[in-house]
């Protein structure tokens, strides 16, 4: 899919995703080695966006499995369409049982869920397994077969193997430690907060109307807040929101009043706001 790491950065950038060298390298390797990519990092640094950008670059369909507590085989893999099977049985009354049985367990009655969808078919696909840590530990076992061999076993149909391997991205917020078995099958990528230079470019790209000097100040303030010990440090998403807010307020430069009024966009806890105000020498809020 990609020829070099620079090629990855350039083509991702063309879709509006500015990748750090770490991200570009890992995406390149995931493509080369044909391994799934496990992405961890704080909320709002663009883990899900990465999968979308890769799908766009590759001209592939994005198949998304959103994990939650209680997601199971019939939501993730496949399910038999019971209602349709019943209809089929009652429609063919004078058939022998053997004919009916072979018929109702055919592909026509199979409801494919994301994991199976990603494996079947010849068109290129990107499989995004979002918030893997939210799913129960049993689901990980289900993923192992899919991720290591790109195959799914349906007892009535046999084993379905991918003719064309999808590019797999798993994301996790580390609210639960994923099992070692799952981690071993993946390339690991931690997306942290970007460095100042990259974040400045991201802000300029996402909020084109913002003045360059102001963008620099915005990034510096956010960087200082991240160095503090806060309950919830601002993420890239918050930086962009703040830049949008400043643009909407018509601010040309940062000053006490503007920062104080718009602090709520960056920080979501009152304790944090007070702490930040003390740090930035704002008057009492």
């Amino acid at each position: 899919m990609f020829t070099s790491v620079d090629d990855v950065s350039a083509r991702l950038a063309a879709t509006g995703y500015l990748a750090s060298p770490a991200v570009a390298t890992t995406v390149f390797l995931a493509d080369r080695l044909g391994k799934p990519l496990l992405v961890e990092g704080p909320a709002g640094v663009g883990k899900t966006e990465l999968a979308k950008a890769v799908a766009e670059v590759a001209g592939a369909r994005l198949v998304r499995l959103q994990c939650y507590e209680g997601v199971d085989e019939s939501r993730a893999l496949y399910e038999w369409n019971h209602a349709k099977q019943l209809l089929r049985i009652s429609a063919g009354r004078d058939e022998t049982w053997d004919e009916t049985r072979t018929d109702i367990f055919s592909e026509e009655f199979l409801l494919t869920r994301p994991l199976l969808t990603a494996i079947r078919g010849d068109d290129p696909k990107v499989l995004l397994i979002d918030e893997t840590d939210k799913a129960d530990i049993e689901v990980e076992g289900l993923l192992l077969e899919v991720l290591s061999d790109f195959q799914v076993t349906v007892p009535e149909l046999g084993t379905i193997t991918a003719t064309r391997r999808p590019f797999v991205v798993l994301t996790s917020n580390a609210s639960r430690e994923l099992s070692e078995a799952l981690r071993r099958r993946c390339l690991f990528l931690h997306i942290g907060f970007p460095d100042e230079e990259l974040e400045r470019r991201i802000v300029r790209l996402k909020v084109p109307g913002l003045d360059a000097a102001l963008a620099e100040s915005v990034v510096r303030v956010v960087g200082a807040l991240r160095a503090m010990d806060l309950r919830k440090v601002p993420s890239v998403a918050e930086t962009i929101d703040w830049a949008h807010t400043l643009l909407a307020l018509g601010a040309d430069t940062l000053d006490e009043t503007v920062v104080r009024d718009s602090m709520g966009v960056l920080l979501k806890h009152q304790d944090d706001v007070l702490k930040a105000a003390a740090k930035l020498d704002l008057d009492a809020v």
Binding site: V5, T26, L29, R184
Partner: peptide
Amino acid sequence: DRELLREGLAATLLHGT
């Protein structure tokens, strides 16, 4: 490129932050 190599090895060898 040494930095690319660093990221590449980190991606393949490490499993956690």
